[in-house]
């Protein structure tokens, strides 16, 4: 089993399209890769009781979350034949329409990356202690729960 370092997955604020583009560009030198797959989680402007979600303010148990992200990475590397994997999650305010989760997996072949990304995203939803305060346009709020 490869022994990967514990990484800090969190980024302050939204994950920008520039950041995502740069991440993709960095892989052009890794020419053994034949397939990438990307998942982008976007803040949805849900309408609840006639009020629209304007943003989500994310907080986390960062230490535990980074450990759990590490476990998910290690499990995914064991389960699938991946060349590399990157996970980034936002903390703080992310407006509706902006990206709050970026998962990027790469492999020699496409058949690995489809199930891998689904596995990783489902594990994140289930196991990562991240909390989301949905801020409505009128500045009232409610706490989001993953369904």
């Amino acid at each position: 089993m490869k022994n990967h370092k514990l990484k800090n997955v969190f980024r302050e604020g939204a994950i920008t399209t520039e950041f995502i583009a740069n991440s993709i560009a960095k892989h052009q030198v890794k020419t053994s890769i034949g397939a990438h797959n990307i998942f982008l989680g976007q803040v949805r402007a849900d309408e609840i009781n006639a009020k629209k979600v304007a943003a989500i303010d994310y907080t986390a148990h960062e230490d535990m979350a980074n450990h759990k992200f590490h476990e998910i990475r290690e499990a995914a590397f064991l389960k699938f034949d991946l060349t590399c994997m990157h996970i980034y999650h936002s903390l703080g305010m992310v407006k509706s329409g902006e990206i709050c989760l970026f998962v990027f997996v790469s492999s020699k072949r496409r058949k690995e990356v489809f199930p891998a990304i689904e596995f990783i995203v489902e594990e994140i939803k289930l196991k990562i202690p991240v909390f989301g305060k949905e801020i409505f346009e009128d500045q009232t709020h409610q706490w989001k729960v993953n369904s």
Binding site: A60, A65, H89, V121, I124, K125, L126, V130, F131, V145
Partner: peptide, 28 residues
Amino acid sequence: IAQHNELNTDKTKVTSSEIALLPPFAGG
């Protein structure tokens, strides 16, 4: 409830000096 970065059950012994109370997760 979590300690040592792991979720606990009611029967788990308290062995850490830091205990975290975690509401439902909402990542992603």
